[in-house]
Design a protein around this nucleic acid. Structure first.
Length: 574
DNA sequence: CGCGGAAGTG
DNA sequence: CACTTCCGCG
């Protein structure tokens, strides 16, 4: 079970509680059927958006993260094909999209027909390759490559809303064969027999007409990223984020670097692992650099057991992995943003110069070591303690906080207290997406400082992009944020004054950052909770209500997100 | 067109 | 869980 299942599992988010800090992390969840991973709609949308061939039906347009479904019926058809739901139509698809509102993955752009907007603030897209943005130029609306990394924050107590996970990571080598096969269509036959699905797949297969490159495009450095970086992102940023990450941990030996993900790679059959690691610009997969990643038990079997422990290094790797996961889009909203350490101060810039355009980055070999790790490490270590000691952290799995389920009832365990119980609730199975881990770490030093400063910060961001529109704007720096998720840097509120420079240079003293971050976090969390709770009518079912984590913890808590790999267009056979 | 509840599915 | 299906409401 393990292996196969794990591999194929989708990533899920797990909550980690570290020293009282809770972090949500996505992990794979054991789906029942290995082979049949289902692609998620938003991933699918993202895929379509990145393929030129579909620009006629759906494309980035408008604000950051905004896209327009130019041909609803076609998109629905494609989606239906992908899911083998011949009956799919825009009405249904839109319902699904609306369903994302609650998760805050998407928003509707009011006033614009068929126009939705991704909440990249909440999503962590790591290395989402914006390839082929059609004309080669990327719309401002297109997301940055790796936004994700930046935003990871410790999650509030209420994780409930977390988004979902990711998708497929695929490991190239191993699975590629499969993928190919799948792509080919073996899988393709939908029950209905409609050939519809083929479209995407074909593409994937390389055939399609069009766009071939994208997927596998790895080889081609190219296009893939051209354009991607949002104006605001700079190389530096990227580097900061991922740049140095030369060493990614590779979880599984077999997997190449791509595996950023902490968890075992998922075997998704994707169309050849196209994106492979290579793609991610940011990430470099440095070939030699893999750290000897030892698959810590924890990592390897997160899903399996309920308890495991790992040390700081693991953690780092883990985090890195997350950050770097190839293509991953993820979600946790605010998480990365607030994560203090994620950004790295300039000093660290990797050797690579910052060049202006991202492209270079992309192509460029992976920069040497990234700071990411450091940062993470730092965060963990420093944050928690001072250094990155290898001290082993222990994590206890807790039941996911989630909560929103109304119906089944679920699981709700969010807060700290009940970890285990929750687990049990989960029936032992990792079905739940998030599991909380209790990290036992010494010295959590940081408490939160009550800083009232931030203004609204991100709060708005997610929620409302609308605000952005609506608001007169002056949003503090925050406004900028949304757009620049990548680095997370939203500018700092208040004092920071140093918003991110266009060049992406962010220069904020770490301390400040920290502080701010914390405060922000707190705030966010607070808001977040509120939002979550109230936001959309909280739908959580019963249990959860109570469960919210105590404020105390919450603040500290943050989520980690990770995302994953690529989406594959192919369908899992229907 | 868009929203969101409710029930159903795998 | 993540939709899918159906549907009433505005």
């Amino acid at each position: 079970m393990f292996r196969s299942s794990i591999l194929s599992l989708p990533i899920q988010k797990y909550g980690l509680k570290i020293n009282q800090i809770q972090i949500g992390i996505w992990a794979y969840k054991p789906e029942s059927s290995p082979g049949s991973r289902q692609i998620q709609l938003w991933h699918f949308i993202l895929e379509l958006l990145r393929k030129e061939e579909y620009h006629e039906v759906i494309a980035w347009q408008g604000d950051y993260g905004e896209f327009v479904i130019k041909d609803p019926d076609e998109v629905a058809r494609l989606w239906g094909a992908r899911k083998c739901k011949p009956q799919m139509n825009y009405d249904k698809l839109s319902r699904a999209l609306r369903y994302y509102y609650n998760k805050r993955i998407l928003h509707k752009t009011k006033g614009k027909r068929f126009t939705y907007k991704f909440n990249f603030n909440k999503l962590v897209l790591v290395n989402y390759p914006f390839i082929d943005m059609g004309s080669g130029r990327v719309p401002q609306s297109a997301p940055p490559i790796t936004s994700g990394g930046s935003h990871f924050r410790f999650p509030p107590s209420t994780p409930s809303e977390v988004l979902s996970p990711s998708e497929d990571l695929r490991s190239p080598g191993v699975f590629s064969g499969v993928a190919r096969r799948m792509a080919r269509g073996s899988v393709s036959d939908c029950s209905d027999g409609t050939s519809t699905n083929s479209e995407l797949e074909e593409t994937v297969g390389g055939g399609g007409g069009g766009a071939p490159g994208d997927d596998r495009g790895l080889g081609g450095p190219d296009r893939s990223f051209r354009g991607l970086l949002p104006p605001r992102m700079t190389h530096e940023s990227l580097f900061r984020m991922y740049g140095s990450g030369a060493h990614l941990a590779r979880p599984t030996p077999r997997v190449h670097s791509e595996q950023l993900s902490p968890f075992p790679v998922s075997p998704l059959p994707g169309p050849g692992g196209h994106l492979g690691p290579a793609l991610s610009p940011g990430l470099s997969m440095t070939p030699g650099s893999h750290l000897p990643y030892t698959p810590s038990p924890s990592m390897s079997s997160p899903m399996l057991g309920s308890h495991f422990s790992f040390n700081a290094d693991d953690m780092k790797r883990y985090l890195q992995a997350h950050a770097q996961s190839v293509y991953n889009y993820h979600l946790s909203p605010r998480a990365f943003l607030h994560y203090p350490n994620i950004l790295i101060p300039q000093p660290h810039r990797p050797p690579a110069h910052d060049k202006p355009p991202a492209h270079h980055l992309l192509h460029a070999p992976p920069p040497p070591p990234m700071h990411l790790s450091h940062s993470l490490a730092g965060s963990l270590g420093a944050g928690l303690d001072d250094q990155q000691h290898p001290s082993p952290f222990k994590f206890k799995l807790q039941p996911p906080p989630l909560g929103r389920k109304q119906r089944d009832g679920g699981c709700s365990s969010s807060s700290s207290a009940h970890g285990q119980s929750a687990a049990s609730a989960g029936s032992g199975r990792w079905s739940e997406k998030r599991c909380l881990f209790t990290l036992v770490v010494p010295s959590p030093r940081h408490q939160v400082e009550p800083i009232s400063d931030n203004e609204s910060e991100e709060v708005e961001d997610d929620e409302d992009d609308e605000d952005v529109f609506k608001t007169p704007a002056t949003p503090p720096l925050s406004a900028g944020l949304p757009p620049l998720p990548l680095l997370s840097l939203k500018s700092e509120p208040g004092q920071g004054s140093a918003p991110i420079s266009p060049g992406g240079t962010l220069c904020i003293p770490l301390k400040l950052r920290f502080k701010r971050r914390w405060s922000e976090d707190q705030k966010m969390e607070a808001d977040g909770e509120r939002e979550e709770a109230e936001d959309k009518k909280v739908r959580r079912g019963g249990v959860e209500g109570l469960g919210v984590a105590p404020p105390t913890q919450r603040r500290s808590s943050s989520e980690l997100q990770r995302a994953t790999a690529q989406l594959s267009l192919e369908n899992s056979g229907c």
